[in-house]
Amino acid sequence: MASTTDTGKAPSSHVELLFQAQIRKARQFRINVGISWAVLLFLLIFLFSGKNIQIGSFTFETIQLDSEFMVKNASFIAQGLSQTLLISFLSIFLAMMLALLAALGRLSTFPPLYAISTFYVSLIRGTPLYLQIFFFFLALPQLGIVLPGIVAGVMALGLNYGAYMSETFRAGLSSVGRGQREAAMALGMTPGQTMRRVILPQALRFAIPPMGNDFISMTKDSALVSATGFVHEVMWRATKVGRAQFNNLEALIMAAVFYWVMTLVLTFFQGRLEARLSKGDK
């Protein structure tokens, strides 16, 4: 705030006016964005309302959805949310473990560890996630390894995200300056103590916001697991009822709404988390 008492009243009020104008401008921008969002959302809903608009001789037809089908099947699809969230939580947990190990391996001076880490990341990043999921569901049974659907799904997603997230961890670990390690060493800490007490806590704080983003995209990538037909999450349920009654349009729209809302909720919490973490920096 402009509380410059020593410079006299005139400049102070001038600063105050500019400051107020800036705040007003920012607020106006947010309001306008909000209104535009509302309009876009309204248009999108209107597009599926089934109402026809007559403008002169031109008739604008919107899409008619089978509302009876939607009402009847909404809860069936919604029941998949728990599976979607369960897969996502388990997978992100596995991914975090793998990512941390891979990141440590990548920073290791021991050749085999470095090799294992880079090999894993290269293999996973060099093949499609879709293929990896099918590998766990379809290829492993050929070797006599039949995993329960959710286990196979979690392993595929966890392995995949772990490879990508290892970069985030590595960046987090390298963001901790050399001086921190030296200070810990000078105190007599062992390498393990230095890692646990000094490096990791700082690296994690750096890595948590991007990991939140990864988690949000994982909730959506978990839909790929439906393709195997063994895990009854949102996408599987949507395609099942959609195909059965040839109401794919309605079923997919409902699934999309569920994913979108879930993402919005998670994004909200992630924003809160990020704000809280950055507060500790000041």
């Binding site: 001086g179 000078a186 105190l187 806590p201």
Partner: peptide, 26 residues
């Protein structure tokens, strides 16, 4: 005991936590 040009305090610990870290952990 070492004192560095860039201080190298642990930013995730309070002043007191910084100072007791060595005696407690090491």
């Amino acid at each position: 005991g070492m004192v560095f040009q860039e201080f190298n305090l642990f930013p995730h610990m309070t002043v007191l936590e910084n100072v007791i870290e060595g005696p407690v952990t090491v």
